[in-house]
């Protein structure tokens, strides 16, 4: 199957009301091209699972431009995006706050066919309200469910034509687990190479997880992403 598609094509795999897993930490390791296309589309009622909502007006922050595009955001840190805080206080955006480690593990479980896990993180806090508690070997844990998505939008440095992925340093962040937990996985990459050019040992995401590849419209200049085409 040919996995490389045009950036306009991937939107057909996203439906209104879908849950999207979106990689990235701030704007680092973030599929900025896919997000731009999504923000410009008429898709609506989306739920986004991501560490945060980009920055104000950047990355996932762009999904807040159109009322009704983003219904819910689940992640660990929204305070730094004032637009997100505003949308939430205006009642236009639902937010589910998840500790960052719990988020990463929940997505890992979602992708690994594990229904949930018990963790000590957040025990006894507001974020544990309504969650099952369990004593294991004398310690208290809470049950957290695995997280899966309809579509995962991730960012890698390079793909080969099979869809094997390598990442740029800490640009890996949540992309690696999110690649395993979406029914459809779309990877935005800076570069595509022939099969065999990546060393098997450097591949972080095996191609089995990746459905489509889109070339990034951004280039890094002075270490920062700048839109180029």
């Amino acid at each position: 199957m040919k996995k490389l598609i045009d950036k306009k094509e991937f939107l057909q795999y996203i439906n209104d009301g879908d849950t999207l897993l979106v990689g990235g930490f701030g704007l680092s390791g973030t599929p900025l091209t896919l997000i731009d296309e999504l923000a410009a589309s008429s898709k609506k009622e989306l739920t986004v699972v991501s560490n945060n909502l980009g920055e104000e007006g950047k990355g996932l922050g762009k999904l807040l431009f159109k009322k009704g595009q983003l219904k819910k955001a689940a992640g660990s840190y929204f305070t730094s995006n004032r637009d997100a805080v505003q949308a939430w206080s205006d009642g236009e955006l639902e937010i589910e706050l998840i500790p960052q480690g719990t988020l990463a593990e929940a997505v890992r479980c979602g992708g690994a066919g594990i229904g949930g896990f018990y963790t000590k993180t957040a025990v006894g806090t507001k974020l544990a309200e309504g969650k099952e508690e369990k004593e294991i070997d004398g310690e208290t844990f809470i049950l957290e469910k695995g997280i899966k998505g309809d579509v995962a939008l991730i960012k890698a440095l390079k793909a080969d034509k099979y869809g094997n992925l390598v990442y740029d340093h800490t640009g890996l962040n949540l992309n690696g687990v999110m690649a395993t937990a979406g029914k459809t996985v779309i990877a935005e990459v800076d570069e595509i190479v022939e099969v065999g050019e990546l060393s098997p040992a450097e591949i972080v995401t095996p191609h089995v997880y990746v459905d489509y590849i889109v070339m990034s419209s951004y280039v890094k200049t002075g270490g920062k992403y700048v839109e180029s085409k």
Binding site: Y77, F78, S80, L97, P99, G101, T121
Partner: peptide, 9 residues
């Protein structure tokens, strides 16, 4: 209350 990051972990 919209941010927790890795604090609880």
């Amino acid at each position: 209350i919209l941010g927790v990051g890795g604090a609880m972990d």
